[in-house]
Write a protein that binds this DNA or RNA. Structure first.
Lengths: 343, 343
DNA sequence: CTGAAAGCGCTAACAC
DNA sequence: GTGTTAGCGCTTTCAG
């Protein structure tokens, strides 16, 4: 079976030299054609670009990076994949990074293996590192700063005052939920916690509890969280609902916890939602909109957050270090059917 | 506020030269220390390695790649993020790729934007490209072959006979499901389809239908699928269950479809599962084990498939092109509570 | 406006 | 076993 396209010898890509030779120009002239601000005759540039696309030449960013000190690589570090929020986010983020001409190098942080992964990533000299992982602590940003790579923490506070962060206004979101539930006549509020060391968990709780206190509704009880997962939601709900004074409304630190909590409440406790128990989540992942959950939640303005991240990242690669260190985007309450309508 | 660690001037990383100077050796000697099979005095190597970790030197893989023709980058292309199978997979795959000393460059394929993303990826000269996307067709593998980069299709047939593929034995899985359902006494079987052009969809259907025919159970009816998503499962189930002779068992082309189908069957049709309707999925995603679904399904041997992919990839980077073009790993039936026990 | 030459950080011949 | 040299593909002075 013969094949039209024959396999080229491994990696014998067309280079500037080839292009220069075929055009009878010098390599430097050819190179200039790819920079908008380079001095080159418009007509020459046109000839180069035409020929380039003809023979399939693209400048090699690795070689280019060696000299320009810019790899156009954005390192993205993830870890908490049990939370469906992250895959959705990662996809959008990657798309947008590609759209501005950068590429994503993905690292999965494995706390057990040391954070070797981060170091390998850094050896590729990414122009910027974005950390999506809740687990990675300050030593990650130390490692980056040591080699002069700016770090953006996404959906998480910066580990220190040298890093940048982009988050939803989690405290505000928590307060919105408190208002919704108190307005709905609930008095026995509970908070179903995720990872206690996650800033999202802390801020959502704080906003929630403060608003409750401010409205003289006392301090909600809270589960002792361990992770942001379905299983934790299930477990935490059983714990909270098993107490003597059963809560009549649960604010869950995020949607996947809420989903687990709903399953526990309906299956194991035989409760009707929202009649016996109101449930509110945070994030607005796709699952929250599924008919079987139809979860009231606080929507993170993901698109805005990503746009903000991209702006920040692009600015940082250009050396504008003086940007605001912490972006905080307001979230929006999405009322579905796991809460009673406001009176 | 003064800070102990001061930010280095952007990208002024320590290089071989620095290391060589500090050790009073030549750069080549230093370089050799990082290759196990290089000729160098063991004691010299030790000194180099020690000093290197002391001053935080790591060879720059970009510069290295320029000369060795190996970037140690593995390109991973994804698209179908609505299927939770992929995030779980991507994480594990990335971990394993990191474990063998490669790094993942992630591309999200956006059919609308042309497949520019793939070309940008290729400009980084990845040693290998792994395609997780169901959508990407043969032109992707053409583009890769044109530049001499081997392609592995994961969970999908190769688009042509030059590419490699790693899949579950989908036809076998379909047959296992047919046996389970027929043994359970079901006679009105239905197939809830995903993307019709996906090889997984086709193979699972084929294995299922053939086994039914072989056991004289006729040809199951099938929905007309469009995607692998919750919504499609919901919609497809309503369509199949609305027919005159309602099926008493549904084989869904994957788990996320099955989950959507269960919600439709229980909520909209008031059916009990498995009493009124048996449901079987495919993949064994985490959600399949959740108490509210507890889905009988065919487990893809993901770990084996990944191990096979890594072996293949590593072999290919070493130039062993003669490996088996299509790996097919057998899946395993996981019986949970959406099917009646076998008599 | 274009070309020649130097050099980014690294490895691979080739001498010694 | 080690140092010297050349060069990967590219950009960037510096002349012309």
């Amino acid at each position: 079976m013969s094949t039209a396209l024959k396999r080229e010898p491994r990696n014998s890509r067309v280079t500037v030299k080839d292009l220069a030779r075929q055009l009878g120009m010098s390599v430097s002239t050819v190179s200039r054609a790819f920079y908008d601000d380079a001095v080159i005759a418009p007509e020459t540039r046109e000839r180069v670009l035409l020929k380039a696309s003809e023979i399939g030449y693209q400048p090699n960013p690795l070689a280019r990076g060696l000299i320009t000190k810019s790899s156009r690589i954005v390192g993205v570090v993830v870890s908490d994949i049990t939370n469906p929020f992250y895959p959705e986010l990662l996809t959008k983020l990657t798309e947008q990074i590609q759209a501005v001409g950068f590429n994503v190098m993905l690292v999965v942080d494995q706390p057990d293996r040391g954070d070797d992964g981060l170091n390998v990533l850094l050896s590729y000299h990414p122009d910027i590192v974005i950390i999506l992982a809740t687990t990675l602590s300050s030593h990650a940003s130390d490692a980056c700063r040591r080699v002069g790579t700016p770090v953006i923490f996404f959906n998480r506070h910066a580990a220190d005052e040298h890093s940048f962060s982009v988050t939803c206004d989690n405290a505000l979101g928590g307060a919105l939920v408190a208002d919704l539930l108190l307005d709905g006549g609930h008095r026995r509020l509970g908070f179903l916690a995720g990872r206690p060391d996650a800033s999202t968990n802390q801020d959502r709780w704080r906003g929630f509890a403060h608003r409750c206190a401010a409205r003289d509704a006392g301090t909600p009880r809270s589960s002792d969280g361990r992770s942001f997962s379905y299983e934790e939601g299930y477990r935490g709900a059983l714990a909270l609902l098993g107490e003597s004074e059963r809560p009549d409304a649960l604010f869950c630190a995020n949607d996947i916890l809420a989903v687990g909590a709903m399953d526990a409440a309906r299956r194991d406790c035989g409760l009707r939602i929202p009649e016996d128990l109101a449930i509110v989540g945070f994030d607005d992942i796709a699952m929250a909109g599924w008919p079987s959950y139809n979860l009231t939640t606080v929507r993170q303005p993901v698109d805005q957050m990503i746009a903000g991240t991209i702006d920040l990242a692009v600015g940082l690669t250009r050396g504008d270090m003086g940007q605001s260190a912490a972006q905080r985007h307001p979230g929006e309450l999405v009322t579905r059917s796991t809460t009673r309508p406001r009176p």
